[in-house]
């Protein structure tokens, strides 16, 4: 286990070095946060409209700012580090080492996420809280449940990204997959619009997909719309399912690599 801790520590350290990228990212989060907040404010006629699909104005603004804060923490888009190492062939030296390949990349991602808790989540959420009237949980235990739920969201997101990355063993170019993945994630994670706003049939589709566990479920926990137990159940299911699926696909990929030479 010490190895994986050391890997995570280095990954944390690595992501701390990207200072300019962090500042640029925070600026973008602020711009989009303020933009969406203004749109929802107009839509709710500054609160006079009351409740829309279970969301009051402060709740929908909280949804907007949690979404912006989570974006980088769960690394919703464009994470292709495993695929890059497959493309360059560096993956070979990782596969040759006496370690668990998926666990190695998970450790790297957790180190990165620890960094993004501090450099992306906290500042973005603080900006939202300063600029807008948000809906705050009443109890410490809700905060705790939210914290756990976000960490599970990171694991679900990793499981999904790891699978996507493994496609590079079969595809020469992952750009097409990336385009589709960004679209699907933006929509079905609930980042753009709360899933509660979807028409009935689409909501059913969203509920059967893993993506809501990445953004929507933690938001619902924060707002008290979902019990911690139900969130834990959904998220833990997807963590385990994606981890197992990742292992199956990885084994197939390694089998292909050792037979066909990649």
């Amino acid at each position: 286990m010490r190895l994986y801790f050391e890997v995570a520590r280095r990954s944390f350290q690595r992501h701390l070095t990207y200072r300019v990228a962090t500042l640029a990212g925070l600026f973008t989060n602020a711009v989009f946060g303020i933009f969406f907040s203004s749109v929802y404010r107009a839509f709710y006629q500054d609160g006079e409209r009351g409740v829309v699909a279970d969301f009051t104005l402060p709740e929908i603004l909280t949804f907007v700012w949690i979404g912006q804060s989570l974006l980088m923490l769960v690394y919703l888009w464009n994470w292709w580090e495993v695929a890059d190492s497959i493309r360059t062939g560096d993956v070979v030296s990782d596969l040759m080492k006496p370690m668990d390949f998926q666990l190695y990349w998970l450790s790297r991602d957790l180190g990165r996420a620890s960094c993004h808790w501090l450099t992306r989540f906290v500042p973005t959420f603080a900006m939202g809280a300063l600029l807008f009237d948000l809906a705050w949980p009443g109890t410490i235990s809700t905060w705790l449940a939210f914290f756990i739920s976000v960490n599970l969201a990171i694991l679900v997101s990793f499981g999904w990204r790891f699978l996507l990355n493994l496609s590079a063993f079969w595809l020469l170019d992952v750009r097409g997959i990336n385009t589709i993945a960004v679209l699907v994630l933006n929509f079905f994670s609930g980042l753009l619009v709360p899933i509660a706003f979807f028409p009935g049939w689409l909501r059913t589709v969203a509920e059967w997909l893993p993506f809501r566990a990445i953004v929507m479920v933690p938001v619902e926990v924060f707002l008290g719309q979902r019990t911690p137990q139900s969130a834990l159940l959904i998220q833990a299911f997807w963590v385990v399912a994606l981890r197992l699926l990742g292992q199956v696909v990885l084994n197939a990929a390694v089998r292909k690599l050792v037979v066909q030479g990649g």
Partner: peptide, 14 residues
């Protein structure tokens, strides 16, 4: 031990 001349096993940013 393995060294591939055109690849690296070192962490790029560290």
């Amino acid at each position: 031990g393995v060294v591939f001349g055109q690849r690296t096993q070192l962490w790029w940013d560290l």
